[in-house]
């Protein structure tokens, strides 16, 4: 699925990374706990979260994630947006709640399968 489709499905707006909306994503992960996110490696992945601090961007960067969706109308800080731009991560914002946002992506074929700890 392309990031542009994720955007459409979640009625999301683009905060940064407009140039990368054509990139493909193959899995997704929804959590507000970053250590849970860090436990599963997925390639070309989307992170859905309601957490807003710079560690969300760093976590995605460490995981080589390509897109972060902020759910529940959360807005990242200018500092976070700057970090995301430096790392080439697309930031999207949606007013959907976590459950609904994950459900919509899952139902459209974006699975959550990851490889635990990547070894």
């Amino acid at each position: 699925m392309k990031i542009s489709q994720v955007m459409e499905l979640l009625d999301a707006s683009v905060i940064c990374g407009e140039d990368s909306l054509g990139k493909h994503v193959y899995s997704a992960c929804g959590s507000d706990m970053m250590s849970d996110v860090l436990a599963y490696v997925k390639d070309q992945s989307v992170l859905l979260t309601g957490l807003v601090n710079s560690q969300v961007i760093r976590t995605a960067e460490m995981m080589d994630m390509v897109c972060i969706v902020f759910v529940r109308s959360k807005t990242p800080t200018p500092e976070m947006i700057e970090l995301a731009k430096e790392s080439g991560i697309v930031l999207l914002a949606s007013d959907k709640r976590m459950y609904e946002a994950c459900g919509k992506l899952y139902a459209s074929g974006l699975c959550g399968n990851g490889v635990k700890n990547g070894k």
């Binding site: 507000d32 706990m33 970053m34 250590s35 601090n53 969300v56």
Partner: peptide, 13 residues
Amino acid sequence: RSLGFGAGMGLPN
């Protein structure tokens, strides 16, 4: 925890 850490996964990870 409110900052997104402290899930008890740090050392295991």
